[in-house]
Amino acid sequence: MATTEQRIRTLVNNQSQPIGRARKNLFKQRFGTFVLYILAILVALAFSLPFFWTISSSLKSAAELYVFPPTFLPETIRWKNYSDVFSLAPFATFISNTVIITALAMVGQIISSAAVAYGFSRFKFPGRDALFFLVLSTMMLPWQVTIVPTFLLFRYLGWINTFLPLIIPSYFGSAFYIFLLRQFFMTIPRDLDEAAKLDGASSVRIFWSIILPLAKAALATVAIFSFLEHWNEFIGPLIFLNSPEKFTLSIGLRYFMDNPFEGDEPREAILMAASLIVALPPLILFFAAQKYFVRGIVTTGLKG
């Protein structure tokens, strides 16, 4: 028969085994997390290296840019590159033109796409599905197919060399955003619509006061995509705009690039500075709107 002391010793031994296993598991878990973090940091560094190289190049002189082997940090920081961007080309004008076009086009795209998506998601009417597929099918048309008739249409309207071709089409919806918003609207429970109807709200009132506020995350997504699309657009401004005072930033960057088959004075450092100026607003917008993505995932609007 085991003594009390022996029994106590046995008990202690049995308890320490699970504790040791738990410690091992915890170590494995933490080590795994550590490895994942290291991998993520390395991959992030690899992807962000071109961006940091752009920053570094934007602060170098032209001579330093061509040093061989290349150096990462500039020997002398040349902030003048940023002022040269504005003195060598009417960059301030390009910025204001791009802001005007982007803001107006973005608003139009959000409102029109949301309205159309609301119709497709909330109302049943004959031919609804066929119409929706027709809208989606317009995504299959490459822009090379539509640019010629579009140009001829705007030429007939007398809109060439104005901002109108770059803004007005956005007020007629966009297939991708209509699809995206429709899918999101369909996740919003109809209980809310019915409750509002019982209170006497019209469809427009429901759309404005209930659906839109609940769809902030989706609308923020559309806003970001739309902003990027119009901020970076190049082909549209190239084709529809002729006067330099109407150019946008995407064409403005060309002021710092060489002509093909010809050696102009190298301006790559200034081009890097200009590129950073152009990239800054989309970056700021992305980080500012990030929270709306997270909220939208967890919120459906139902309480209690």
Partner: peptide, 8 residues
């Protein structure tokens, strides 16, 4: 009246 376009 000058209308400038990118070289490429």
């Amino acid at each position: 009246v000058k209308e400038s376009f990118p070289g490429a």
